[in-house]
């Protein structure tokens, strides 16, 4: 049995027939071809599949696609206009070497977008707490923390200038 759902992803509307058991993460990747959302553990521990659901960061592997019917989703694909115009957060990751293999990066970016909105000038402690739900096996987090600090500065400059 399938259900027809209409979901807005990165401001574009999609209508698809899905089985109720299809996870939102698999819907994004397999139905819409948006493979920027990565799946790691698929049981809510690693944070790689973090997306924005109506603006709030959530695990897309713990939500069924049918539950997103009528809702608005944002994924990493929506952050940059194109590869030469990264968002300030992405640009900061680039500049501070905030990623190595990159597998965890989309989930980390989607975690940080609402975090920096709510907390534009975070302390290092707050940044580390915000990152606690995203596992990174490469970096040891130091450069990710640097990237968030730099992004906060860049975004403050944009907002005040």
């Amino acid at each position: 049995m399938t259900v027809s759902i209409t979901v807005t992803v990165n401001e574009q509307e999609y209508t698809r027939e899905v089985e109720p058991r299809l996870l939102l993460s698999d819907f994004l990747r397999h139905e819409l071809g948006l493979t920027g959302t990565h799946v790691g553990c698929e049981h809510g521990v690693c944070g790689a599949c973090t997306i924005l659901f109506d603006g709030e960061s959530m695990r897309s592997c713990l939500i069924f696609a049918v539950q997103a019917d009528g809702h608005s989703i944002a994924t990493v694909e929506g952050l940059a206009k194109d590869k030469d115009n990264l968002s300030p957060l992405q640009q900061s990751f680039w500049e501070t070497h905030g990623l190595q293999c990159g597998y965890c990066t989309p989930g980390i970016l989607m975690t940080l977008i609402p975090f920096l909105k709510q907390n534009p000038n975070p302390s290092e402690d707050e940044i580390r707490h915000a990152l606690s739900g995203n596992l990174c096996r490469c970096t040891g987090y130091q450069h990710i923390v640097d990237a968030v600090k730099l992004a906060a500065e860049k975004m403050m400059d944009v907002n005040s200038g």
């Binding site: 809510g44 944070g47 959530m58 695990r59 939500i63 975690t111």
Partner: peptide, 9 residues
């Protein structure tokens, strides 16, 4: 309780 992403849901 868990992480912000979990508490959001």
């Amino acid at each position: 309780i868990a992480h912000p992403q979990i508490r959001n849901r």
